[in-house]
Design a protein around this nucleic acid. Structure first.
Length: 237
DNA sequence: TCATTAAATTGTT
DNA sequence: AACAATTTAATGA
């Protein structure tokens, strides 16, 4: 986590696969889509690179096309608190974009990622013109509210196995992160950073979950077998 | 395409 | 934190 330079978004034609990874594109009318696609920008982010920083004015509404990002904030004592990871298909910052305020969080790439950005002005134009887009944003805000409440619960859990399970479940959220699908590409080290546990402990928790056939541990990723079980994981002893 | 080597990730102590 | 084992990615013939 060292790169300080700001993310450089380039304007270029997105490939069909990249557009497919943007969930709200399909909710627009052809006219709206045309304008949105034209305004969309894209960038590669290296590990540690900042996508946006706390306190900076909002310029773009961001989404993850590929890779994994980390949302965190720094408190008054200078300590960093990690809130959540953002896997593929996830879009964030709509709250601040709507109010045209400054970013409330730091967003960093946890690994090499591809990030798309829509300028705030275009974001507002879509809000003013597209019902489909409004529906998406509303749904997004609603779902995230639920996720943050769940995150508070997770924080109060002492049991590491449950913390890992619930954190994983939120990363597998199909509404917020439709790009994830069955397999979440994340290393155990990356998950350890997000959950705030050691890699060893995360490994132990994952092994326990795999033994219950809730997930399957794969090289460089995790396959969800039973999302419900992941969400409602209990302590076994 | 295949074989070899380096790098990344995982499992374990 | 350290180490070995395993998997993937990179390289070059």
């Amino acid at each position: 986590m060292q790169t300080e330079s700001a993310l450089h978004l380039r304007r270029r034609a997105l490939t069909a696969a990249e557009l497919d990874a943007i969930p709200w594109i399909h909710l627009l009318s052809s006219l709206e889509r045309e304008r949105a696609v034209e305004e969309l920008k894209i960038a590669d982010a290296s590990p540690g690179e900042y996508i946006c920083r706390m306190g900076r004015p909002v310029t773009y509404w961001f989404g993850v096309v590929d890779g994994l990002l980390k949302m965190s904030s720094d408190n008054a004592e200078g300590q960093t608190m990690t809130f959540t990871g953002v896997p593929p298909g996830g879009w964030f910052g709509e709250g601040t974009a709507m109010k045209r305020e400054t970013y409330r969080y730091n967003i960093q790439a946890l690994r090499k990622s591809m990030v798309a950005g829509l300028h705030v002005d275009t974001f507002h134009w879509l809000l003013d013109h597209s019902i489909g887009f409004n529906r998406f944003v509303m749904n997004q805000l609603n779902e995230r509210l639920g996720q943050f409440i769940a995150a508070r619960e997770i924080d109060r859990m002492t049991n590491p196995d449950i913390r890992v399970a619930r954190s994983l479940a939120s990363l597998f959220n199909p509404v917020l992160y439709p790009g994830v699908g069955e397999v979440l590409r994340i290393t155990q080290q990356e998950l350890a950073y997000l959950v705030g546990l050691s890699r060893q402990r995360v490994n132990e928790a994952l092994t326990a979950l795999a033994a219950q056939d809730v997930i399957k541990v794969e090289y460089g990723g995790l396959r969800v077998l039973d999302l419900q079980a992941l969400r409602s994981q209990m302590v076994f002893r």
